[in-house]
Design a protein around this nucleic acid. Structure first.
Length: 572
DNA sequence: GCCGTTTTCGGCCCGACTGTTTTCAGTCG
């Protein structure tokens, strides 16, 4: 059982306990453990084997036992018994915004509702509104949410959200009287998927800025329009909220709205222990009730005895303790990258010629670019035959002769076949500067088979980098079911590097895997997998993932100049 | 159910909004 499944069970237990009217703090304990497991860089199964489950914050004696039971038997008696106490389907009622545990229980007990269809019927028939303590307004509210739930677009990849936000920011910054505008929320934390966008702004005349915001050309629908808060929906269904705040409180507000919720809860608990009450308005001294306001986050964190914690790290794990110990690393920045090690050209399925790709990379400030067109393997668009690849190497030598301060590296993205063998012969691979290996087929193999397959490729002395290790496509294709701990151990053992693929629909390795791989000392690279010159700019998404994995420049091979990078990569 | 700069017991983040209310419960983020 993997962390995501365990997390789901704990979340369900929390909901059921809430329905039962259990102690809210007990409920929160389950929820917190679920969130922690979700982002845990190592499988709970692994920790269980090592007897270290208790070391995870939020997991005590009782939860350790329950997780162990889930891991060993795949079931949990406590959970099964709990579920049996409720009519089936009651949890789905709580998925409707506006229906919490109390309302869900009443709908079920008093009206016999167990499905969303029955709920809608009851709402339309006026049976919900006639319940005591309910009313017409409440029923309408639930109905509205129910209907919007139907056409609800789920969270979208950050790669889709960020350009939309940037176009909004660009327009808003031209509005007269605007002082400052920045994104908060999961976008600022660089989560791989985004729900809605929160923007924070300060301005001379907030109401006029709010007016400009709801009048943007991107607006498809205006949900709320007030002097200090407005909400719009833009093309694609993305909701964007703008909050206008006092400059004096900007730091506290930005901190609050950046989250995560879990990080903020831990921060407030810390504040409590120091005799302070934290809120979006600032910090109140419990003793005197005096409110201190904060213009910037640095001072806010400093008041709590902490250095600034980068948004990407604010996930409510152990970042606060580590900040206290001075262990917040100087995270990798986009400008640290010196080259790109995975790109396609018009020789295979890319769109631009070798020379254009080289020039584009050079003008992006890079010192090198590896072109890695596909191997001849089946199913991959226009893969190169060995003789074509040799012709390309020749062409690359010719282009390099005309370049100064930049080097095109000849490479290939070679298929890892279903049996773990590579799609090009050894002697051809040994002629290349860079060999990037990747799974493109038979992605449904069993865990044991695919793990062995990937490890076999890593053990091949010609393979420098494993590209997009999980092969996932966000919202489209699930990752392969490999045992990642074993894969990371193999990468460390063999010295092969793992790729952080920066294509926004991939982001693969994902953040928690980057964290674990880095912890183990696995070599990492950030590559764009560019298929045309404009894709080179996507590197920033890979950098975001690496930052969420606590990476510094030294953890990423392609922050090194070309010779040092190649020396490390080939020194196996 | 978790956890410890008062604590192994007694706490546990904070505020806003909404609706149906005679003082507040439920829900959300």
């Amino acid at each position: 059982m993997n962390n995501a499944s365990i997390s789901k069970v704990l979340d369900n237990i929390a909901e059921l306990l809430e329905l039962k009217g259990e102690n809210v703090f007990k409920v929160r304990a389950y929820q917190r453990a679920a969130r922690t497991l979700e982002g845990l860089p190592v499988e709970a199964a692994q920790l269980h084997r090592e007897g270290r489950l208790r070391q995870v914050p939020g997991i005590g004696e009782a939860l350790e036992k329950k997780i162990a039971e889930l891991l060993t038997t795949g079931r949990l008696e406590y959970y099964d018994k709990l579920r049996a106490e409720f009519p089936p389907g009651i949890e789905t009622l709580m998925e409707v915004p506006g229906i919490g545990p109390k309302t869900a229980v009443r709908l079920s007990r008093e009206l016999g509702i167990t499905t969303l269809e029955q709920l809608e019927e009851a709402l339309l028939a006026g049976r919900v509104a006639s319940l005591p303590q309910m009313g017409q307004k409440s029923a309408e509210n639930i109905l509205r949410h129910l209907q919007s739930l139907r056409r609800k677009e789920t969270r979208i990849p950050i790669g889709q959200a960020l350009p939309v936000v940037e176009s909004i920011l660009q327009r808003m910054r031209q509005v007269d009287g605007l002082w400052e505008i920045v994104p908060a929320g999961s976008l600022r934390r660089f989560k791989e998927t985004i729900g809605d966008i929160d923007l924070m702004a300060t301005a001379r005349d907030p109401a006029s800025i709010s007016q400009a915001f709801v009048s943007l050309p991107q607006v498809r629908e205006v949900l709320v329009h007030g002097p200090t808060k407005s909400s719009i929906v833009v093309e694609g269904g993305l909701q964007v909220d703008l909050r206008l705040v006092e400059p004096d409180s900007f730091g506290a507000m930005l901190q609050y709205f950046t989250g995560s919720k879990e990080h903020n809860i831990l921060l407030r608990e810390r504040g409590n222990r120091m005799g302070l009450k934290l809120s979006e308005y600032g910090i109140t001294l419990l003793e005197t009730e005096a409110l201190e306001k904060y213009r910037d986050e640095d001072a806010f964190y400093a008041r709590l005895g902490l250095p600034f914690i980068p948004p990407e790290l604010r996930e409510g794990r152990d970042e606060i303790e580590r900040a206290e110990r001075g262990e917040i690393p100087h995270l990798l920045q986009v400008g640290d990258l010196k080259g790109d090690l995975h790109a396609h050209t018009d020789w295979s399925d890319g769109h631009d010629p070798l020379e254009d790709m080289a020039r584009a990379a050079q003008s992006a400030g890079y010192g090198y670019l590896a072109t890695t067109d596909h191997s001849s393997g089946r199913g991959v668009a226009r893969g190169l035959k060995p003789e074509r690849l040799r012709a390309q190497m020749e062409e690359i030598r010719r282009i390099n002769a005309g370049l100064t301060g930049f080097r095109l590296l000849s490479g290939a993205e070679v298929d890892i076949r279903a049996d773990g063998s590579l799609d090009f012969p050894d002697e051809l691979l040994s002629e290349l500067d860079i060999v990037v290996a990747a799974v493109h087929s038979a992605m449904g193999q069993d865990r044991e088979v695919i793990t062995r397959r990937i490890i076999k490729a890593l053990e091949d002395p010609h393979v420098d980098i494993l590209a997009h290790p999980s092969t996932r496509l966000l919202g489209e294709r699930d990752p392969v079911d490999a045992d990642w701990e074993q894969v990371f151990q193999a990468a460390r053992r063999t010295g092969a590097a793992l790729e952080i693929n920066a294509m926004p629909q991939r982001l693969d390795l994902k953040d928690s895997h980057v964290y674990r791989a880095r912890e183990l000392g696995v070599k990492l690279v950030i590559s764009t997998d560019s298929h045309d010159t404009t894709h080179l700019g996507l590197a920033r998404f890979g950098v975001g993932v690496a930052r969420r994995g606590w990476c510094q420049a030294g953890d990423i091979l392609n922050t090194l100049p070309v010779d040092e990078m190649l020396a490390l990569l080939h020194n196996r």
